[in-house]
Design a protein around this nucleic acid. Sequence first.
DNA 1: GTAAAGCCGTACGCTTCCGTACGGAAATAA
DNA 2: TTATTTCCGTACGGAAGCGTACGGCTTTAC
Lengths: 240, 240
Amino acid sequence: MNDASPLRTDVRNRLLAKMAAHDWALVAPHLESITLKERQVVEVPNKPITHVYFVETGVVSVVAVNAEDHRIEVGVIGKEGMTGHPLVFGDDRAQHSAYMQIGGSGRRMPAAAFVEAMKQSPSLRALVLKSAQAFMIQTAHTALANGRAKLEERLARWLLMAHDRLDSDAVPLTHEFLAVMLGVRRAGVTVALHSFERRGMITTRRGQLTLVNRAAIEQVAGSFYGIPEAELKRLMSEPL
Amino acid sequence: MNDASPLRTDVRNRLLAKMAAHDWALVAPHLESITLKERQVVEVPNKPITHVYFVETGVVSVVAVNAEDHRIEVGVIGKEGMTGHPLVFGDDRAQHSAYMQIGGSGRRMPAAAFVEAMKQSPSLRALVLKSAQAFMIQTAHTALANGRAKLEERLARWLLMAHDRLDSDAVPLTHEFLAVMLGVRRAGVTVALHSFERRGMITTRRGQLTLVNRAAIEQVAGSFYGIPEAELKRLMSEPL
DNA sequence: GTAAAGCCGTACGCTTCCGTACGGAAATAA
DNA sequence: TTATTTCCGTACGGAAGCGTACGGCTTTAC
C-alpha cells in the first residue's frame, strides 16, 4: 500500500490518512484546504449538502432540530471522521444542522465529486461506510446518555469526546454553547463546571476551560463514555 | 418492473416489496418465513449477526446498552424495515441488543447470504442503505426526545411509532416494558397512561392498551413525532 | 382450587433540573 | 474612556420524575 504521495504527508484527517493510494488519488484532486471558523455552518437541515468536510483540527457539532425548534446535539465530528454522511447513504440533503463548534481547519471537496469517487471505488465506499457507522454508534449512545445520565455525567462525556478530537487540553467554549449541545440550562452547566473545578478536574476562565485530570472526568462520565470510542477504534483498525 | 413473482404476493415487508425483481430473485431463495415471538432475541451486542429479519408484523426494539447495564431503546423496526444494519455497513456484529418487543412474523435470511446479495447488486445496496439511513434518523430523533421531551411526550411518541407499525390499534405491552424502553420508572408510565385514558386517548387493560384517539396522541407528542416518519416516506418513495 | 407469579394503582420523600432573573465582571466596540 | 455586549455566578421557587414500597387484582402454574 503506497501512501507516500507528497500531498499526504501533512494530512491529519484520519479517514484521508487511512485511504488506499488509489482512493487518495481519486479524492485528492478535489480537496481544498480550508480554515473552519467557529460557528461556521457546514450543513443545513433539508438543504442539499454542498461539500464533504474532512476535519483536521476543531470539532463539528451535528444537531437535530424539530419543528418546534427543540434541538440537541446528536454527535460530534473531528479529525477521525467526515461530515456529509447522508451522501454515503445515497441521499443528497442533510437531515441535521451541522456547524463548527470549535474552530479549526480541514479539507473539503464538493459533494458531487465525493459521490462520483464513491461510485468508482468499492474500497472508498467501504471506508466511508465505516465512518458513517461509527457516527451512528455515537448517536445511539448519545440517546442513551440523554435518557439516563445526569447532567454532570453528560457534561463529562462531552468534554471527553471533545478532548479526544483536540490537540490541546483547552476547550474554547462558553457555558452557553455547552448548554445548547446538551439541551440543558446554561446555569446548570455553570454549576456543574464549578463542581468539576473544585474537584480539580478542570480549570476555567471566561470562554474556555482546560482539562487537568482526565482520569477523574472519565470516572464521572462512567460507562456513558467509551463504547463509541472503542467501536471507532475497532472499525478503523480492521482491514478494508 | 416485474414484481409479480408468485412468492411476492403475500410479502408485507415494505423493503422486500420495494425490491426490484432481480434483487428479489437474489434474496428470495434464502428467505425463511418465521414467527417472531415477543421477547425473542434478534441481535446480541458484540455478537455476530446471524440473520437479517424482515419484519412483517410485530415490532423490534433496538436497545443500546453500556457497561453498567444502563439501557435505552434507540429505535424500533417494523414492516417498514429490517434488522442487521451493521451488515449494511460492512460489519458483522451487532452493537445493540435487539428483540421482539411486540410479537409477530416475518422472513429472515442468513447474514452471509445477505452480504453476498449486497455484494452482487448495487440496487439492493442502495435500498438497504436507505433503510439504514431512515433508522439512523430515527435514532437521532430519539436522542432529541430523550434529552428534551417530557415523559408524556416521549410515551406518546412511542405509541405513535408502534401504531405505525401495527395493523391494529391494540398495543400488547405491559407498563414495565414501556418503562424499560423509555428509560423511566414503571410507575411513571402507569400514571401517564392513566392521564391519557382520562383524556380519552387510549383505553387500557392488563398487559394491553388501545389507541382510540390518535390525533390527540399526536398532539401530545407534538414535534417530537413526525420527522423520521416523513423522512422514511421520502427515502422510500424516491427512485432507486 | 389453591398457590404463585405477574401486573397495576398509589403514595411519600427526595433529587435533579428547570424557568427566570439579577448583578457583576470581562471583553469588545465606539 | 466610555458604552455596550457578552459571559458568568448565584439565587429561588417549582416541576418533573426518581427510588422505593405496599397492597390488591389478574393471570398462570401446579
